[in-house]
Design a protein around this nucleic acid. Structure first.
Lengths: 203, 203
DNA sequence: ATTTAGTTTAACCGTTTGGTTAACAAAAGT
DNA sequence: ACTTTTGTTAACCAAACGGTTAAACTAAAT
């Protein structure tokens, strides 16, 4: 069991690295731990990815490419703002339940090293808000929406959807709920949040 | 040049530790780095705080006690929901500009070790949402507010205020602004966010 | 059958890390 | 005056860490 243009090992490594890095972060992760989880020798990590930094970047890029399509649900389709909000909100919450560590991981590591965002943007995953801003301006002028800047609305949408998951331990402490209670609360938010936003902006 | 009933050294250590830990997190911080910043020998860290973990906990507790009064602006005063929202929003944004790493630090480390919240709650810093919930229910019944659960409203208020700072690098990448542009946007939010919330909930 | 090239491993290496120790210096206590 | 206690330092230590090496192994090409 050894030789054959083996993309399998490389993928096993990336998967193990994804688990460890997303759970413990760059600084908290240990190469040995990743190797153990992948069930291979530590030297293989370096054989395929040279060093910890590059392995980490591979994980980070993949994580970001998983998240990006979710955000493009708001930014780059042609529906109305109301539809964008409804669509994104219900979608995103389902998404996070599938990938619990992902939003936190991205935010945490982006704070540790803000330059990563540049490497991402080079890599053709451009996240551009212009189209969204034009649509907001249009609907404001048409009287559909109350006056609001596109940037602020976009930040608000992200905040209401992403924050509760990023700050989960804090929220749980306040709400005084167990995991099940927290998830029920999040389930409610699939409609609650979009109603909240739409009430805030619609004329 | 050595001896004198010195509470000064202990405080210098805590201050240096605060800077390093809040900026780099538990895993990323180095004891030597903290000692260097405090301008003392590394052994002193252990003399006063025994080990890294305890030094970290001292920093974390202090950080949390700095944040808690801000949150009590919503939870434990007798004003109307509208006043709570206006008050907290303008206050909090000024607060974060003074303590840029603080919210991020707390959220990040609480995710790394959710049990910290227990140590905090033992320590008499109870953060209880009950009073807030009662007030929301009251104003809903009086017809001042649209129907909304206290928990959800509280999460929304936190989210809209805290998120943009926690996700600063991400937001900056979207908005395509430099630091100055970001701060202007946050300055706008002092009123923008409370208007947004009030429009969403008021009858 | 032998070479060749890619894959995998055990052992190793230098450095960094959190933590300890022993000696020392200045107050405080007697 | 002396002893004891407290604060401080330089030197040290074992363990953990990221990374390397050289050799073994495997399957395909010649």
């Amino acid at each position: 069991m050894a030789k054959k243009r083996d993309e399998n090992t490389e993928l096993q490594i990336l998967n193990a690295a994804k688990n460890i890095f997303q759970y413990k972060g760059m600084d908290g992760a240990r190469m040995q731990e990743i190797a153990d989880l992948a069930g291979i020798n530590k030297a293989m990590l370096h054989y395929y990815y040279r060093n910890k930094q590059l392995l980490f970047e591979a994980v980070f890029k993949q994580a970001f490419s998983t998240l990006a399509p979710q955000l493009n649900l708001i930014l780059n389709n042609d529906s109305s703002i109301e539809d964008k909000v409804k669509n994104f909100t219900s979608n995103y919450i389902s998404f996070v339940i599938k990938h619990p560590y992902l939003p936190n991981f991205i935010i945490q590591e982006l704070n540790r090293n803000p330059d990563f965002i540049l490497k991402i943007q080079e890599n053709s995953l451009l996240l551009n808000i212009d189209k969204f801003k034009k649509r907001v301006l249009l609907e404001v002028n048409q009287g559909i929406l109350k006056p609001i800047k596109g940037e602020q609305l976009f930040i608000n949408i992200l905040a209401l959807n992403i924050f509760p998951f990023v700050a989960k331990p804090l929220v749980k402490a306040f709400i005084n709920e167990n995991d099940k209670g927290f998830e029920e609360l999040m389930e409610q938010r699939k409609t609650e949040v979009s109603d909240f936003i739409i009430q805030a902006i619609k004329n």
